[in-house]
Design a binder for these strands. Sequence first.
DNA 1: CAGAATCCACCAGGATACTG
DNA 2: CAGTATCCTGGTGGATTCTG
Lengths: 140, 140
Amino acid sequence: MYERKTPLTIDCGLHLTKEVLNGKWKPALLNAISMNVKRPSELLRLFPGATRRVLNVQLKELEGHGMVEKKTYPQLPPKVEYSLTEIGWSLMPIIDAMNQWGDANRSFLETVITQDPKIVETSKAICPMYKRMSVVPKIG
Amino acid sequence: MYERKTPLTIDCGLHLTKEVLNGKWKPALLNAISMNVKRPSELLRLFPGATRRVLNVQLKELEGHGMVEKKTYPQLPPKVEYSLTEIGWSLMPIIDAMNQWGDANRSFLETVITQDPKIVETSKAICPMYKRMSVVPKIG
DNA sequence: CAGAATCCACCAGGATACTG
DNA sequence: CAGTATCCTGGTGGATTCTG
């Protein structure tokens, strides 16, 4: 069983972190960017369930929170690249942990979550794409 | 800098985890319960910003997802106690990581988040209580 | 290719009041 | 003490359209 080391705080840091990760696509965006999927059009392709607008909004929030850096090349056609900041990178262990936990408990989670009428499509929507991307994208 | 071990998946497990933790008070609730704050009235006191109704809803979802177990004592007055299931406990490293990350970057985060008009009160609302609870609650 | 402006639907979650 | 019903609103995020 899991042993807690620091029983100090209740949830304050928790809420700050939750704020940063608050948004349907933010963890996924951070994850993707960390894997060198850094251009808007690529991200858009990666998340068929998301609109350009929504992605832009969430990326802007991530940028505003200092997790992501945006580089705009003044060309025609325009080119934009996102990258993780240092603090953004420091978030990756959490993202990875979430990813691994979800994967490790997939069968159970899919069962209990499918009971729930609301989420089904949302969580499923992403999975096919995840198959397609099983090969690490190499861009840039 | 952080080294990624498994560049395999993109975000599928991520979404499952996000689903489970999806809800304003869920991580905080799990955290509290893990620290033996297990009775509804205590939880209610712990989160002044939350209504009984909302807490009930989120607890019921957590229960439905198998993260939490609810024990009802058929007494008068009624007594209810929540506890983490095994899989619920397996979530704690993630919660702790979020907590620690938020704490470690508190000053920075509070700055960048306060730029944002919307969140301010939400994240602040919890903090005073966190002071009061700096001593680990001993109940049950 | 990238982004901004509008419009809008939906639901999470807050307020209130009542029951056991 | 615990739970539920009802009502309501604010914000997220989806669809669409237009510019550079």
